[in-house]
Amino acid sequence: MTYCVGMRLNAGLVFLSDSRTNAGVDQVGTFRKLSVFEIPGERLMVMMTAGNLSISQSIRQLVAELKTDDGHSIWTAPNLYEAARILGQAVRQVHARDAQALSEFGIEFNVSMIFGGQIKGERCRLFQIYSAGNFIEARDENTYFQIGEAKYGKPIIDRVVTPATSLDDAAKCALISMDSTLRSNVSVGLPLDLLVYESDQLALTHFVTIDDRNAYFQMIRNTWGQQLKSVFEGLDAPVWNAAPGMADNVLHAANTINQPVRVTPPGGTAPASAHGPLQTLSQQFHDGQQ
């Protein structure tokens, strides 16, 4: 499996991908999923892929060579939108060539991509491309895309990242998002590829491959876990059966009636009995308020 995240910010772009493609008991596959298309001083574009590895590799090879009917390629497209269209066309060509044969072997045509960068004369742009070759573009209200195992790393990005976030903070947030995913899903794994692009540079400036010896990522993993635990322990435990409004941590106020949905057993399977009041977690606390 895979986890990749791309962010479009006022200051530039951040891309982060893992490299695991198989997490079987006796076979762990590692393939890099981030590719750079660069003409220094004129354009820099980044593609990250998730899904079937053979499909994504075919698309990467084809898009580097493909020309449209009007003669444009990803190397000469006048803007990122046209470059994304060329990538979508490559997806459809690979689908037309391989999808039927894959289907006969029970293999779904499954691929998704994050594609972004900057071409001279326009701002940074970011797209998510689907298996049908269609795509959407990141806007200020939705400034990032994820592909692959996205759910574990999403909450921290939603809470932190805005268009005004600095590149360094966005990179830090992306690494925390990846760490959350690594801890919860064995199908995502090191090493990671991190690319940070500053607007208008039109060349690769900040790139690093991160393995388990990277000091900064190890600091992120250790410190983030410790800080989360510290924050958790600093939150008050819930109070049950308390007077309303007496504290912020009242979960259940006294004299309120809450009952679960009860399933009635068939006749004769259990002795009839009246349900007493639900047991509370802090009866002592409530008794002390009398």
Rank of each mutant, 00 (worst) to 15 (best):
Q57V: 02
D158F: 00
V208D: 00
L13D: 15
D158Y: 00
A243S: 11
A11H: 09
I59V: 08
G12R: 05
P163Y: 10
D158P: 00
Q289N: 08
N249V: 06
A270M: 14
A150E: 07
P40W: 04
I129K: 01
S112D: 06
L228R: 15
Q226V: 13
E108M: 09
E82F: 06
A83E: 08
L190P: 02
G276R: 08
D140L: 07
F115L: 01
A101V: 09
K120D: 07
V36Y: 00
I210T: 04
D158R: 11
A247Y: 09
T223Y: 14
D236G: 01
T264W: 01
L251A: 14
F127M: 10
Q227D: 15
P277E: 12
F115W: 05
G268M: 08
V186D: 10
A23K: 07
R183Y: 00
Q283M: 08
A174H: 06
T49F: 09
E104N: 09
Q226P: 01
E38P: 01
N110R: 06
F37D: 01
A96M: 14
A253D: 12
G29C: 02
Y216E: 14
G24T: 04
F115T: 00
Y216V: 09
T165I: 00
D169E: 15
A23F: 13
L62H: 07
A90H: 10
L44K: 05
M47K: 07
Q146T: 08
R123V: 08
H275S: 09
S103T: 04
V261Q: 05
E82K: 12
Q128N: 11
F127P: 12
G225R: 08
Q279H: 10
H206W: 05
Y144F: 15
G234A: 15
T2S: 11
V160W: 02
L66T: 03
L192G: 10
V25A: 15
R183H: 04
A254I: 15
A174S: 14
N255W: 05
S180F: 09
R85M: 11
S19Y: 04
L13N: 08
A101N: 11
V161M: 04
T2N: 08
A247Q: 07
T280G: 11
A84T: 12
R221E: 12
V186R: 14
G153P: 07
N241Q: 12
P163D: 05
V239C: 02
N241M: 02
L102G: 03
A215V: 15
H72S: 14
N258K: 13
A170R: 10
R32G: 09
T68G: 07
V111G: 07
E82R: 15
D193H: 03
R60F: 08
Q61V: 02
D70F: 09
L66G: 05
R8T: 03
Q118K: 03
P78C: 11
G88C: 07
N134D: 14
E108Q: 13
A83D: 10
I210E: 03
D69Y: 13
G268D: 02
Q146C: 13
M246D: 11
A203W: 01
A99N: 04
P277C: 04
R123N: 15
T49L: 00
